[in-house]
Nucleic acid binder design. Structure first.
Lengths: 256, 256
DNA sequence: CAGTGGTCTAGACCACGTG
DNA sequence: ACGTGGTCTAGACCACTGC
């Protein structure tokens, strides 16, 4: 079947909205699924239509839809569950909470965690943050600072920056009442699904302020983790600078 | 086609050597391919037989072989090249050198690297190393210490432990003459292909010895990276404790 | 039981690399 | 021109889930 020319076969089908022409069919389908996810047609935690339905909608075979879904599942945007359907990934659910947190107790025991908000303010974006978030320095950002404790011990000092235009109504108050991962809150309250993140890690010495906040000695070694998180269209939506105390925890990573 | 019962269909084919029964056909094929890789039937850098040949050998369809190869390619054990064939991954080749090294210059410029061996001795395995390498403490290990420099600046202090039985004939001399990644040397000289690694990362303060070796101040913050590397069959083959200077470099990681 | 994703097959054609 | 992997299809059957 000759089908690489842009939009052939069923010109008036759902597929005519496509953008990526001259690429494999399943990639085009993947793009369309991504658009639907981004647009919020299917919400996090919900099931998407079955493979046969999607195949009918896009006028392709089930196998082609399957390959598109396979890739999205491999990227953790979708979750397949045999016999039940394919679901939009979510940061709610015990299984994938802390999906982005690689800090792990040295003994395997899962710790009891708690969060304390130190600050929540709206300011003009500093130049470096603006650059990372694709904003102008005139734009407003939300700046959050918090301490995460594990087993009662302060362990992570986070400095978080979010685009103000998207995160309207995010206040210290609403945060104080909330239990659970921030990313889950972003999802349900602001419709922002974090899908991917990049981290840059260094070793640094604790300043006086940091040492006080984390209840450790001045100049203690800390793991500095700068994270930029992205939503669907690879749009940066969060900058997070974390300082980790790594005497009873370590950052775990797998290399392939 | 009823085929989950162990070894049906072609009892005297290559597949009768299988181990994993009651699993999908393509998983069994994957297992057989892994055995061949482990056994050294195809060497790193070489092409494996074409999909059709393998399909004939295992008495399954090309699609089933394809799915097995897909998974091995996703795990970076194999490398597909359209029009040419499927190749066994290797640590030679500029493209994948430093496949396991996540330390990256802050400005993107690729640095000039150099290695200096500080020590190479054979000793009885310390208890912690023995545990990580699945050895007994009576077994011998090779202990290597070296400095990696980037752009003339000492940046990584490595302390490496290898099972002595496998790495016979590894001496300071042979290392001094060698240029290139250690993993490539392991591959060509000792037939050991590193396929996967796990890292535990912490921030520490430089001791006097470490500071001297890295030409930094006492108690400077360092990134401590403990890596265990595995060959085929998930057999641990190396423990590497690295100390990274992270003022002009950072450890880069992607989260999905 | 019906509906979902998971496996397996067979065959067609395309795109790429090499001779 | 040929052989390789890459895409796409159509259809069969299996395994799991939930009614």
């Amino acid at each position: 079947m000759s089908n690489n020319p842009p939009t052939d076969r069923a010109p008036d089908s759902d597929r005519s909205a496509s953008s990526a022409a001259f690429s494999p069919l399943y990639q085009q389908i993947k793009g369309l699924l991504l658009q639907s996810l981004d647009r919020g047609e299917w919400k996090p935690g919900e099931a998407i239509p079955s493979e046969l339905e999607l195949a009918a909608r896009f006028q392709v075979s089930q196998g082609t839809v399957r390959k598109a879904i396979d890739e999205l599942a491999a990227e953790n945007l979708l979750l397949r569950r045999q016999g039940k359907g394919t679901f939009v990934a979510t940061h709610h659910e015990a299984k994938v909470r802390f999906r982005f947190l690689r800090l792990t107790p040295d003994d395997g025991k899962p710790p009891i965690s708690g969060s304390r908000i130190l600050e929540c303010r709206r300011v003009k974006a500093p130049a470096d943050i603006a650059a990372l978030l694709d904003l102008r320095t005139a734009d407003m950002v939300v700046n959050l600072r918090r301490i995460l404790s594990f087993d009662q011990t302060p362990t992570i000092l986070d400095d978080i920056w979010l685009p103000g235009a998207v995160f309207r109504g995010l206040t210290a108050d609403s945060l104080a009442r909330y239990r659970g991962p921030l990313y889950a809150l972003f999802e349900s309250e602001f419709g922002v699904s974090m899908v991917r993140a990049e981290e840059k890690i260094r070793a640094v010495s604790a300043t006086q302020d940091q040492a006080d906040a984390l209840e450790i000695a001045l100049a203690s070694p800390l793991l500095q983790v700068e994270r930029v998180s992205y939503t669907y269209g690879d749009r940066p939506m969060e900058v997070r600078r974390g300082l980790y105390v790594t005497d009873r925890f370590h950052y775990k990573n797998s290399l392939n």
